[in-house]
Design a protein around this nucleic acid. Sequence first.
DNA 1: CTGTTAGCGCTTTCAC
DNA 2: GTGAAAGCGCTAACAG
Lengths: 362, 362
Amino acid sequence: MAEDASTTALTLKDIAREAGVSLATVDRVLHNRPGVRPDTVRRVKEAIARNAFQPHVAAAELARGRARRFAFVMPSGPNPFMQQIEAYLGEMSGWLSARRLSVEIVATDVFDPSVLAASLESLSGDYDGVAVVALDHPSVRAAINDLVEAGTKVVTLVSDVPSSRRHHYVGIDNIAAGRTAGALVGRLIGQRSGKVAIVAGSQALRDHAERIFGFNQVMASEFPDLGVLPVLEGRDEDNRSEQLLARLFGRHADIVGLYNVGAGTQGVGKALTDKALTDKALTDKVSSDAGREKRVVFVGHDVTALTRRLLLQGVMDAAISQNPGHEARAAVRVLLALARGEPILREQEKIRIDIVMRDNLP
Amino acid sequence: MAEDASTTALTLKDIAREAGVSLATVDRVLHNRPGVRPDTVRRVKEAIARNAFQPHVAAAELARGRARRFAFVMPSGPNPFMQQIEAYLGEMSGWLSARRLSVEIVATDVFDPSVLAASLESLSGDYDGVAVVALDHPSVRAAINDLVEAGTKVVTLVSDVPSSRRHHYVGIDNIAAGRTAGALVGRLIGQRSGKVAIVAGSQALRDHAERIFGFNQVMASEFPDLGVLPVLEGRDEDNRSEQLLARLFGRHADIVGLYNVGAGTQGVGKALTDKALTDKALTDKVSSDAGREKRVVFVGHDVTALTRRLLLQGVMDAAISQNPGHEARAAVRVLLALARGEPILREQEKIRIDIVMRDNLP
DNA sequence: CTGTTAGCGCTTTCAC
DNA sequence: GTGAAAGCGCTAACAG
């Protein structure tokens, strides 16, 4: 139990002496480099294990000389969530340069498989690691596999390609996120009855499809009395989402819940507040609590300036969120650990599904 | 814009040459060490600023030689949450030793101010940094200030002493946590009416008192129709909490919500399931949905093996949680950054108030 | 297949 | 006040 804390930690040299070999040989074994007789490998490995030897990362880092370069392949459009990730990468610049790490952002049309694949291919050889917001498509998968083949460390970010050989996925489980949204909508509706609407960008997007799947799962099994209306596809555009919704509200007077799967939140919020005003005007003479009774429970994704405001105003009830700062830092740390051959702290790098309501806004 | 990426990063030597001084002098200026003429200091600082020079942390770490020692002063009792923090510290052992860092856990009766203060005093001089689950008391504050005075870096963990000179607090805003609990209880009760019960360990504990304060704030302003019953003090003990609650349920048939502020969750859960059984027996002949109608909305704190089970069973509706793994790692990283004189990544080290429900269980 | 050796960019004596 | 020089524990190039 009582380790002698005053003893200086072991070094490569100690292991070398103990195994009866030279520094270089231990180094070779440590990094699984070829050119060592199997028997020697065994002896060295034993010495390492016996002493629970941990090489000093700082010394290793210093000795390399060469700085490490990472590329982040991000969507080129003006997506607020992606911009947040880029902003958080920017905030790390001091941290990065003190470690002689460089992170370069490569903007691409990630929605066009061939363009994305070409972008990835063009990175080969120049970077130690690549983080990519990936589209799940065969040619993208192939490009990722090629990078991995060439020795580049690859992590998928926010959107995964599970069938590829990427080393790690930094993002949330979207089915669970959809389930969480469903549980919130159902629970917050409470005893009331009525219908539930869903607005998504497109059901062809893997993450949107997964969220809808999870949402429907929960609605069907736990809130069977709430009828779920067919998914509206707003293409993540504000205007389109607003119009589709307004029309839907016209056709169904009994909508009590709404799940916005992707972006276009501005339009969704607009449609909701318009509806609230109309309802209020209609019922003002009779009852005063149209706000309470007719209020539509609204759950969406991500904490942006807009959703923050909607939450504070009470228009939105909850946002399911994946912390963009955490994703940015986790991607960098994972790439670094992979490049160094260090173990990944799974717990630390796991992205949680955050439920954000008005009182726990970050 | 186009920095020459191939240029090797600057080193101390470059700065020294540019400022017309030696390596040693730049080092002295960099660390605000005495023995440099003011004018020289200025020249060197200018050269550093002009080049946005960042010393290489790995080189600095390697050159120090001496390992850094941190102490974690933790409650000695069998508190599951604290045990989780210790477990996560344990999981970091590889990471720590690869950086020649040592973390020692010092168990103390943190609820006795004089004992805690004495423990802290005894650490002086032996550690580079101390993380402490602090009790807010004058003698504890004094002990913290003494440590800081002696050059030790100090962070408070989970429980803060805001009036002390501690360098950092790693933990949540407990008032906001209480507000979040209140909003959840209120919203999940929905249209039903009735009373809300609160069970706490003790109102003398700062964090419990703050949570109750936040909870009552929200109940009063947003759910004025729900009557909040006087706080039961269960001393975080299962049996006592259960008995107090059972008695309360006997006196009030219309309890629809329950907030458990601290531990003792096992007892609270027991009391709730017993009540559910009784209610069901009473109403089975008349209506079948006593489960739905009479169900008490139950919100508590922290994700442990027990609360996880209660959430899955549907006995508990939500747990307000502060991620113990994050707290452990944040405390270490903050102490390390403070010791190295590096900036702290505020965003990264901020502990969020997590809302955990069945579908987003970590 | 294995060993020797020259640094990496700092920190820290010890001299001047 | 300031500078010169000896490492810290690795990696990588080169020599056998």
